[in-house]
């Protein structure tokens, strides 16, 4: 039993060393902040390791948790932004992104409906195949394909508006 625990720990540490930098980097691109990226990546690993009794397929599980945590972070900052806007209602609103080549794709993705956003991030950004995304989100493959299509169209339309 002790040997099994040691093997599990070694495997968990190896997984951490192998996956943390990319996962944290992935999160940083979405939240644009090193500290928050570390918090989310560490929380994803904590959840994985507190529930994980074997060594079953942890990588996409990690990304799924991280996607959910990023979504929560976006919700939180969106609430904060709304509160600030309410408090400073008389101040003219600043544009939320810079036009042309500096289009803030992060902000555009953040504005996608949650259903489209998760599929988009997992497929186009985390690199999971349509089948894997379907399994992760518990949706039929056809639905995921349609969601990805709609997400791209919405983003393209949004880019068209700001450029």
């Amino acid at each position: 039993m002790a040997r099994l625990r040691t093997a599990d720990r070694a495997a968990a540490e190896e997984l951490f060393n192998a996956c943390y930098p990319r996962l944290a980097g992935w999160v940083r691109r979405l939240v644009d902040d090193d500290e928050t990226a570390h918090e989310i990546a560490a929380e994803a690993f904590t959840r994985l390791m507190s529930r994980w009794s074997g060594l079953e397929n942890p990588q996409s599980y990690l990304y799924m948790i991280a996607t959910n945590l990023v979504r929560d972070h976006w919700r939180k900052i969106s609430r904060e932004r709304r509160a600030i806007r309410t408090m400073t209602a008389t101040v003219p609103r600043e544009p939320s992104w810079q036009p042309a080549q500096d289009v803030d794709v992060r902000a555009l993705i953040e504005d996608l409906p949650p259903k489209l956003r998760s599929a988009f991030l997992l497929h186009y950004y985390a690199g999971f195949g349509v089948k894997e995304v379907a399994a992760l989100l518990g949706r039929p493959e056809g639905t995921v394909k349609a969601d990805l299509h709609h997400a791209r169209n919405r983003l393209k339309a949004a880019v068209g508006e700001v450029t």
Binding site: E13, P21, A37, T46, V103, Y124
Partner: peptide, 29 residues
């Protein structure tokens, strides 16, 4: 397409802070 450009960029790795694994393991336990 800026979306395409953004997606095609490689993710810059973000190395864990010192002792991060130990902290995560303790929290998980």
């Amino acid at each position: 397409d800026p979306i395409e450009e953004w997606l095609s960029e490689d993710v810059d790795l973000l190395q864990p802070p010192q002792g991060a694994f130990r902290t995560v393991r303790r929290r998980a336990r």
